[in-house]
């Protein structure tokens, strides 16, 4: 493995594929019971018990303004490191782990399926799919509303 490839975990939300560096990911767990917190923002799903630790969980579907769907067997929580603390991201499913060449990662366009480049780190083409690499720090820190482009979703 050369120095400039990195492993990425690919996950789905709606019809889009997203990538996240494996080094940011602590673990991927199955969906579990989420305790909601009163008065919290819409996309902040609540907290879960992960082996005795309390981890805050963000619903990425809601973060992208998509309608709520019933969780399936594929639904996962990806536990990542965010500013030194564990945070969980609810995703529709985790599909694969890919080796991606740094050189293949393109700069993000101004916006991608309705997501502004503020929240994008880049895009990469894998076979026929476009994988969106999110800037998770900005995404989790910002309170700005994001609407994933639904029309595009339908076309895919």
């Amino acid at each position: 493995m050369s120095e400039d490839t990195q492993q990425m975990i690919i996950f789905d939300i709606g019809n889009e594929k997203f990538g996240i560096k494996i080094t940011r990911v602590h673990e991927i767990i199955r969906m579990k019971e989420i305790t909601e917190l009163p008065d919290s923002s819409e996309y902040f799903a609540g907290i879960v018990n992960r082996r005795g630790d309390i981890v805050s969980v963000v619903d990425l579907r809601k973060r992208f303004g998509l309608e709520e769907i019933v969780e399936t067997d594929n639904t996962r929580i990806i536990i990542i490191d965010f500013q030194g603390k564990d945070v969980g991201l609810i995703v529709d499913g985790v599909s694969e782990v890919l080796h991606i060449n740094e050189a293949d990662i393109d700069d993000p366009p101004q916006s991608m399926v309705g997501i502004k480049d503020d929240y994008l780190q880049g895009i990469v083409k894998v076979d026929e799919d476009i994988v969106i690499i999110l800037d998770l720090d900005n995404l989790l820190e910002s309170k700005e509303e994001i609407e994933l482009d639904k029309e595009k979703q339908g076309n895919e």
Binding site: T35, S41, N49, S56
Partner: peptide
Amino acid sequence: IKRINDLSENIEKIAGGAILGDGSIAL
């Protein structure tokens, strides 16, 4: 008491979480 990572600003009403004997969370 376990601290809750305040990704959300409006959780002043909750001082923290606690894990109960059955693994569920009490606020």
